[in-house]
Design a protein around this nucleic acid. Structure first.
Lengths: 177, 177
DNA sequence: CATAACTCGGACTATAATGATCCGCGTTAT
DNA sequence: ATAACGCGGATCATTATAGTCCGAGTTATG
């Protein structure tokens, strides 16, 4: 299993769509069906983004999520931490203190400070986090904008509007898709 | 669960002891009991290190493991990859191709190249791996040598020798510890 | 004002990975 | 010959992840 999980992947993809819809809130359900991912699972991801102040939620019918800040002010690291809860890269079990020559009583010089192996892992983790902190949603969105043809953005807007209107008038309208 | 697991932690600690015993091979069992970790689990870790050319094994009684190279030539990254099998930080599920506006047939511009989110994760992974690749066993051992008092190294050697001799003469000799 | 479509939260299930154990086989010093 | 090794496969318990389901509270719309 990967360290950065599917929840983060789903979250980031959704945030990019939200960046393209700064006016009208998008529901987690629409975002899920729009991207072919599990709606119930995505519904567990968004509250975490909301608690982290990355998106803002509006309740009730026609409710949904909006980006709480500008895409350029949201780093990938924030999103990862919001969804995964700042889990460490490495979980030091303090093996150095169990060495048999100490006979259950490790001397202070052996357990003082950070374990040397742990320190290496912490540096690697910091390198990873620094890299993620240097990328914002706007950076990623910029890459996509350069790839997509001009009419794509409009296609997306239409799909989402149709979907919302379709549901509002009855399930039959969504059948043809 | 952490991305870099207990297997790596055990492996690195053992390799440091092996670096202090360049002449006489140490068995995985002795290394485990010496450090208070599971012998059976450690016995599953060492074959991976051997296949990666990090340690060399000698079979039969009085057999065990030796470092296959100098501690300064073994990077932490190698050890991690040997034990964990180069698992990725992030497992891209290619969500971009599932977008509903494509109606099951994503256009080539959408799926060409690496997913922009995946690219961010790959950069972070590379930063982490570069950091791990810059640390060798000798670097870690250096930190430890500066902490331990001079007599410690001798205590360790004696413990391991006693343990090997004790088992060679019969289990009764190990009872007093 | 009733309904439908939202968010939110908790309980729950299934599957996969990890940590750990056990056993049998071939090898080797004593 | 035996005891202590390494090696590999089968197995098991625990935990995390991915995903589902349901109930409660909120709000636009007819």
């Amino acid at each position: 299993m990967a360290h950065i999980t599917a929840g983060v992947e789903y979250g980031l993809h959704c945030l990019l769509w939200l960046a393209n819809s700064p006016e009208v809130p998008l529901s987690s359900r629409d975002l899920a069906e729009f991207q072919g991912i599990s709606p119930s699972f995505l519904a567990k991801v968004f509250p975490k983004l909301e608690k982290a102040g990355i998106v803002s939620a509006s309740e009730g019918i026609k409710g949904g999520y909006l980006l709480a800040r500008q895409p350029g002010d949201i780093t990938v690291l924030e999103v990862v931490d919001a969804i995964e809860g700042r889990k460490p890269l490495f979980d030091c079990q303090e093996i150095r203190g169990r060495c048999a020559v100490y006979r259950e009583r490790p001397p202070s010089w052996a357990t003082k400070g950070v374990c040397a192996i742990h320190a290496v892992m912490l540096r690697a983790e910091k390198a990873m986090r620094d890299s993620l902190a240097n990328q914002t949603l706007a950076d990623i969105a910029g890459v996509l904008d350069r790839k997509a043809p001009p009419e794509f953005s409009e296609d997306v807007r239409r799909w989402l509007a149709d979907r919302a209107n379709g549901r509002a008038r009855g399930p039959a309208a969504t059948e043809g898709m």
